[in-house]
């Protein structure tokens, strides 16, 4: 599903966020990416959604080589990958339902489809009845559910999440992780960046450890930093 061949990324000549990263993530996997602050985890995700281009190497997603993707193609890529952030990134002047609908509307989906999909994904994330709330009228956990619902509207093959529980308390965090697992069980590949040891240990899945921009460990099991 996701293949990285010898990927390096430098922001400028002396900041080497990633170098020589090789990764192979199969369809349907649930992968956690861990590592200390500044080791390039966010950079890796930004490469996957073409927010940045690799300085070297090749990135292939679902058979599509996005290493040198044209900016006009980027919107199409982003409609195939769901993204969830620590700070939710909801549009403040739109309601929950409008935020979710927006991802369909930018893709030119018909109104009928928007009216069909939005309630569906809201049900999946457990937000029935909160359609007309604005982001500032919802808790952090609810806002993150809206963001996840929005990431799901295109039935993406891949969902990437950058510390989605970073702003949430432990219980809410586990609810969000359970939601991601549920989505993974539907067949979506999930890539989760997290700092949270208990979450990683709870998942008991594949853990990729980054250090100074390289993969230092790739194993199934518990959270370690070495």
């Amino acid at each position: 599903m996701i293949k990285l061949h010898n990927v390096s990324k430098s922001y400028d000549s002396n900041v080497h966020a990633l170098h020589g990263v090789n990764l192979h993530i199969e369809p349907g996997e649930f992968v956690s990416i861990v590592g200390q602050s500044g080791t390039g985890k966010t950079t890796l995700l930004r490469l996957l959604i073409a927010e940045e281009r690799p300085s070297k190497g090749k990135i292939v997603i679902g058979g599509w080589d996005i290493s040198t993707i044209k900016s006009a193609q980027v919107p199409f890529l982003r409609r195939q990958i769901g993204v969830v952030y620590q700070d939710f990134k909801l549009l403040p002047k739109k309601t929950a339902a409008e935020n979710i609908a927006f991802a369909l509307e930018v893709a030119g989906d018909a109104r009928r489809r928007v009216r069909e999909v939005v309630p569906q994904v809201m049900r999946i994330v457990g937000l029935e009845g909160k359609e007309r709330r604005y982001p500032h009228q919802m808790s952090g956990g609810e806002q993150q559910r809206v963001a996840i619902a929005r990431a799901l509207v295109h039935r993406p093959k891949v969902l990437v999440a950058d510390e989605p529980t970073g702003n949430l308390d432990t219980i809410t965090a586990h609810e969000i992780i359970d939601l991601l697992r549920k989505i993974n069980n539907f067949g979506t590949t999930v890539v989760l960046v997290t700092h949270d040891k208990t979450i990683v240990n709870h998942l008991k899945g594949r853990v990729i450890t980054l250090k100074d921009g390289t993969v230092v460990r790739d194993h199934v099991g518990n959270y370690t930093l070495a």
Binding site: I49, A72, P75, R78, K89, F102, V106
Partner: peptide, 15 residues
């Protein structure tokens, strides 16, 4: 910020 978010959810520049 909203412009950035729109782009991240797949809006084209024209949109």
């Amino acid at each position: 910020e909203e412009i950035g978010i729109m782009k991240l959810v797949g809006a084209s520049n024209n949109f």
